[in-house]
Write a protein that binds this DNA or RNA. Structure first.
Lengths: 337, 337
DNA sequence: GCCGCTAATCGAACCGGTTCAGCGAGAGCC
DNA sequence: GGCTCTCGCTGAACCGGTTCGATTAGCGGC
């Protein structure tokens, strides 16, 4: 059941069927009706490969995700699902490609095989080979996160530096003097992972500006690391009265450490940072924190990508989101000790 | 840079280039060398759409995922990533389709547009419209989970009934008499979600066989629900000394409820069930539990799908996995009250 | 020197769409 | 009545691969 079959049964030419479906040229109402009847009867759908070949575009986006070995976080997962749905709204499909690590074959296949019209690149590093690769291939792409010198490129990112800075000021207003940043893993920081690097610089700058003492620690993405990390903090800097974190995965461990140390939040210790809403709300007590708006980022990324595909020579656009901090109950005035 | 251009520069015909690349007919070593040199120089890759059109297959699998509105669990996330990697091993790509809810357009596009060679269907319900749809379309597919009457179909599933049954027997051996099953949400059970339904039946059968008193409760997939749910259990059935669960997402709430009730695990209360290894290990104390082997299921599903695509008339195969229960430290002998 | 065989290569058809140039019929205008 | 214009439709070319049947060159055998 191809377009020729439909044409034959409707008594018209193949091109007429094509025009009737696309509406790119006028076709008489009677003919359209006849064609639609035949199509409905036979359940015809145009062959996507043939259409892609003829049109020169696939109506498909590539989504470069971190490899399975790097466990996806909750936020990343929500992002993937949201990208798929945002693409579906525009009648586009999403092709997944694990990238980074030793999965470059999949990425390469997507880039060179003209399988997609454009790519959304998750977890961009400050220096990122994939960005260069896509640039050389001339394939439109939108980065989630931005590179060191973004120049003329398309990206969507969360302004971690500003968010962390706000958290620090919030703590400063509450009278805290000695604070700590619980960052992501040392590997990520070393690899130039944007959120981790920018969180750190934002933290250090703002504590300095506010005349506070700011310490930073790296912490692997799991509860056990969070616990160990917090114990170490208490030992090295017992004067610390508040923590800022971007490490969601470590939170259960931090919570356990606080309980074990018999520290009440927020009476004895304040906790804040950039943490997905649903995790912040599930915490006890609910965390004062900024949310990474994965759904909004996904929709924005798809929108920018569409725009770029429609006009590849357009001036690159980008978006630096600053989600508000939701005041909940995990931060309080510093107790004079 | 298409195959014609390569042919011209290598001084051969298009078909010779094609045969040199595919190896489907002998080509002299000298010619192959010349062609490869040109290809390397120009960085040529065959156009995936053209190839798909000519070959009649896309080298792409569809993966039907739950819609973004239904928050994906950690296990599901790992499964998606593993499917992509398993497919990449076979030089296949993965097209994502949110299905269920009102996202049928995307699913329909994938099914009818010949965009994929086969589909992996996540989260299959006991009655599942998608299974019927794929069957009618004659598109090869492998279900994750199985329908009420699986008949002649291809699927991979975890034997929840047996796993839960083993958990119950384990508790029986430890002397527990009154136990409760903390299931997934009531909606899922009502919708005929396999794991939830089979966990329940396995639980009820086994408690009966062992002469135990078994209660079951449904619980939404979040910590708050877990807390509320556990409080209700303590109130209604204070004699209960152990819980079995398949609801990972509710665990933090259950833990909080246990702490609030000053119940020590495993001294005062035992906890077990089907829970992802990494969550079980992060729990305090580490949970005695069975792990859902997402990676293995993904690889199996891809393998079965490949097999089915290669020979659509092959006798359907399936796999019912029974991952072992890892004994950790969350279960103990019942204390005589 | 001619024949037949094999190995290597070629040309053309095909996959199923889109799109462009063009054609015939009917309407409107003078 | 002849001219142009518009409308609706058609036929053919094209997208970039794969594949089949045919062709050619080289070679050994008689």
């Amino acid at each position: 059941m191809n377009i020729g079959e439909i044409a034959k049964r409707a008594g018209v030419s193949r091109s007429t069927v094509s025009y009737a479906l696309s509406g790119k040229r006028p076709v008489s109402a009677a003919t359209v009706r006849r064609i639609n009847d035949v199509i409905a009867e036979l359940g015809y759908r145009p062959n996507a490969s043939a259409r892609a070949l003829a049109e020169g575009r696939t109506r498909t986006f590539g989504l470069a995700i971190p490899p399975a070995s790097a466990r996806l976080t909750d936020v990343q997962l929500g992002f993937v699902a949201s990208v798929v749905e945002a693409a579906a709204v525009h009648d586009h499909d999403v092709l997944l490609s694990p990238s980074g690590g030793d999965h470059d074959r999949s990425f390469e296949r997507i880039v060179t095989g003209r399988r997609v019209d454009g790519v959304i690149l998750m977890e961009v590093r400050l220096e990122d080979a994939r960005v260069d690769r896509l640039g050389r291939a001339g394939l439109p792409f939108v980065a989630i996160g931005h590179v060191e010198h973004p120049g003329a490129s398309w990206w969507v990112d969360v302004d971690y530096a500003t968010l962390i800075s706000r958290c620090v000021r919030h703590l400063a207003d509450l009278g805290h003097q000695d604070v700590v940043l619980v960052n992501r893993s040392a590997e990520l920081v070393a690899a130039g992972y944007g959120p981790a690097v920018r969180a750190m610089s934002g933290f250090l700058e703002t504590t300095a500006e506010c005349g506070m003492t700011g310490h930073t620690v790296c912490c692997a993405d799991d509860p056990a690391a969070g616990l160990a990390c917090f114990d170490r903090i208490r030992e090295r800097w017992p004067e610390v009265t508040a923590a800022v974190t971007i490490n969601e995965a470590a939170l259960p461990g931090v919570q356990r450490a606080l309980e074990r140390a018999k520290l009440d939040v927020p009476r004895d210790f304040s906790l804040t940072g950039v943490i997905a809403d649903r995790l912040a709300e599930d915490f006890h007590p609910p965390l004062t924190a900024a949310n990474v708006p994965a759904g909004e980022m996904a929709r924005l990324a798809v929108e920018l990508l569409q725009e770029q595909i429609a006009d590849p020579s357009a001036t690159p656009r980008n978006a630096l989101l600053e989600p508000p901090i939701s005041l909940r109950s995990s931060t309080g005035a510093r107790r004079r000790g």
